[in-house]
Design a protein around this nucleic acid. Structure first.
Length: 489
DNA sequence: TGAAATGTTGGGGCG
DNA sequence: ACGCCCCAACATTTC
C-alpha cells in the first residue's frame, strides 16, 4: 500500500488542524501530492473577486513554503476541477484523493463530480470536516429542522463539544516524481496596471503563520476588551482574522478552542471570549443557512420581499462605492474597504444600511461590490449579512431599523479619528463638525480648508427625508408572525 | 447589533 | 410658601 494520496486543497490553506492532510500523513509511508486547482468556471457569478485573488496568490505561496518546510510540496493546476484532479491522480498512480468538504451551493455537485471521475479509475475519494465547527446537517432544532433564528442556534452550538485541534504533520513525503505544476505568477492573480494592492500589502500578511500570530495576539491583548472595543472603528478592537478564516488558513475550531481555553485561564476575559465565540457562531450560522438555502446569495429569504421595487441609480451607487456620499462615516468605511480590502464590522452595517435604506438600492449591489473588494469575501457571510441589514433575511433586522449615519458616527467614532484617517480632506475639522461637515459654519469650514460641494460632497440624500421614504417604501412588508421577536440577540 | 416620536417625571426658576 | 411652567432626563411606543 504505497500508492500516493492526493490532498486536494480548497478553502483550507493550512497544515494545522487539517483532517484530510493529517489522515494522509498518518497513512503509513504513503507519499502525498498536495494539489490546488484554480477552476474559473465552477462558481458562476461568484468567481473570485479581485481582492480575494490577491489574497489567494499570497496564501498559496505561503502554503507552498510551509509544505516544502515539512518535506512536501504544492502542485498548482488550472482547469476544470474533475478533469484536473482525475488527471493528477492517474498521473501519480494515486489510490485515494482526500479533501475538506465544502458547503457552497456548488460544492456538493462538484464533489460528486470528482468522486465519479475518480471512481472510473478505481481511485477512492474521501471528504473530511474542517471548514466549519459543526456539520450543518447535524445541528438541528428539536423538530429536526435547520435553525432559522440565531439565538436558539447559539444556545445549541455553545454547548457542543469542540475537539482539540490537530497538530500540523511534522513530516510529509512526496512521490519520487511530482506532477508538473503551474507557476503561481502565471495565474495572474495579482493586479497589474493599475496596481491597486498597495494598501493590501501594507495591511495584511496572508498565510497560516500570520493567522496563528493574530489569534495569539488577540487573546493576549484584545480579548478582554473585545465586548466593547469591537464596536469602535477608531480603535484596534477586532481580531482581523476574517480573511484568514475565509481562506482556511486557520480553522474555526482552532479559534474556538484557543479562545475558550484562554477564557478559563485569564481573569476578566470571559465576557470578551463569549462575545468572540458568538461572532464565530454568526459565521457558522451563515454557512448553515447557505447550506440549507443555496439561493441565499441572490434571492430574498423572506418571500414578502420578492417583489420589492428597489431604485436604480447608477450615480448614487457609484458615489457609495467610491466613498463620496457626503456622510463622513459612510465614506470612511467605503474608502477603508477600497484601500485595505477590509472594513470594520460596525461600519459595514452603517454603509449597508445607507445603501439599502437611505438610497433604496438593491442589497445585491452591495453584496457584489463587497464580493469584489473584500479580502475576507465569503459567500455565506456576505449573503446572510446583506440580507440581515435589508430585513429580508432569515433572522434579520426589522425593516424599520434605519441607521442614522451621523448618530452612528458620533457614537462609535466620537473624536472622528476613523473619519480623519480615511477621509483626509476633512481631517482639520473640529470634532463637533467631523460627522456633519455640511452643517459647519462657513468660518469653521474655511479654517479647515473644506469646501462643501467642492473638496468634499454635500450629502447625496437628506437622511431625514430618506428615512421617511424608506419607511413608506417598506410599509407594505409586514411580519407574518408579529407576536414573536425576530430580532437578533 | 436603531432612532424618532411621544409620554412621564421631577427639579428649579419665578411670580 | 405655593402653584405654575419649563424643560431636561428618562421611559415607552412606534416606525
Amino acid at each position: 500500500m504505497t500508492k500516493p494520496i492526493v490532498v486536494w486543497f480548497r478553502r483550507d490553506l493550512r497544515l494545522a488542524d487539517h483532517a484530510a492532510l493529517s489522515a494522509a500523513a498518518a497513512a503509513d509511508g504513503r507519499p502525498i501530492v498536495s494539489l490546488f486547482v484554480l477552476d474559473d468556471d465552477v462558481a458562476g457569478d461568484w468567481a473570485l473577486g479581485g481582492a480575494s485573488r490577491w489574497w489567494l496568490h499570497h496564501s498559496l505561496a505561503s502554503l507552498k513554503k510551509a509544505l516544502v518546510g515539512v518535506g512536501g510540496d504544492l502542485v498548482l493546476r488550472r482547469g476544470k476541477t474533475r478533469t484536473v484532479i482525475a488527471d493528477v491522480a492517474r498521473e501519480v498512480g494515486a489510490g485515494d484523493v482526500y479533501c475538506s468538504r465544502g458547503y457552497e451551493p456548488w460544492s456538493s455537485d462538484q464533489e460528486t463530480d470528482v468522486r465519479d471521475a475518480l471512481a472510473a479509475h478505481d481511485i477512492a475519494f474521501k471528504r473530511f470536516a474542517g471548514v466549519l465547527l459543526h456539520d450543518p446537517d447535524q445541528v438541528t432544532t428539536q423538530a429536526g429542522q435547520p435553525f432559522k433564528v440565531f439565538t436558539p442556534f447559539w444556545n445549541a452550538v455553545r454547548r457542543l463539544e469542540v475537539k482539540k485541534p490537530l497538530e500540523a504533520p511534522k513530516r510529509v513525503t512526496v512521490p519520487s516524481k511530482l506532477p508538473k505544476s503551474d507557476h503561481l505568477k502565471d495565474w495572474a492573480l495579482l493586479p497589474k496596471r493599475p496596481d491597486w494592492a498597495g494598501g493590501l500589502r501594507e495591511m495584511w500578511v496572508p498565510g497560516e503563520e500570520s493567522a496563528r500570530d493574530l489569534l495569539a495576539e488577540f487573546i493576549d491583548d484584545r480579548m478582554s476588551d473585545y465586548a466593547e472595543a469591537r464596536d469602535r472603528p477608531d480603535v484596534e478592537g477586532t481580531s482581523r482574522l476574517s480573511p484568514h478564516l475565509a481562506f482556511g488558513e486557520i480553522s474555526p475550531r482552532q479559534c474556538w478552542y484557543a479562545v475558550k481555553s484562554a477564557a478559563g485561564r485569564l481573569t476578566h476575559a470571559d465576557k470578551g471570549a463569549e462575545v468572540f465565540l458568538k461572532e464565530l457562531t454568526w459565521r457558522e450560522f451563515s454557512a448553515h443557512l447557505l447550506h440549507h438555502w443555496p439561493t441565499l446569495p441572490t434571492a430574498a429569504f423572506r418571500e414578502e420581499f420578492a417583489g420589492f421595487r428597489w431604485r436604480k441609480d447608477a450615480d448614487q451607487l457609484a458615489a457609495w462605492q467610491r466613498g463620496l456620499t457626503g456622510y463622513p462615516i459612510v465614506d470612511a468605511g467605503m474608502r477603508e474597504l477600497w484601500t485595505t480590502g477590509w472594513m470594520h464590522n460596525r461600519v459595514r452595517m452603517i454603509v449597508a444600511s445607507f445603501l439599502i435604506k437611505d438610497l433604496l438600492l438593491p442589497w445585491q449591489e452591495g453584496e457584489a461590490w463587497f464580493w469584489d473588494t473584500l479580502v475576507d469575501a465569503d459567500l455565506a457571510n456576505n449573503a446572510a449579512n446583506w440580507q440581515w441589514v435589508a430585513g429580508s433575511g432569515a433572522d434579520a433586522a426589522p425593516y424599520f431599523r434605519i441607521f442614522n449615519p451621523v448618530k452612528q458616527g458620533e457614537t462609535f467614532d466620537p473624536e472622528g479619528a476613523y473619519v480623519r484617517r480615511w477621509v483626509p480632506e476633512l481631517a482639520r475639522l473640529p470634532d463637533k463638525s467631523i460627522h456633519t461637515p455640511w452643517l459647519a459654519p462657513q468660518e469653521v469650514l474655511d479654517a479647515a480648508g473644506v469646501s462643501i460641494g467642492d473638496s468634499y460632497p454635500a450629502p447625496i440624500v437628506d437622511h431625514g427625508d430618506a428615512r421617511k421614504r424608506a419607511l413608506a417604501a417598506f410599509d407594505h412588508i409586514k411580519r407574518k408572525t408579529p407576536g414573536k421577536s425576530r430580532t437578533r440577540a
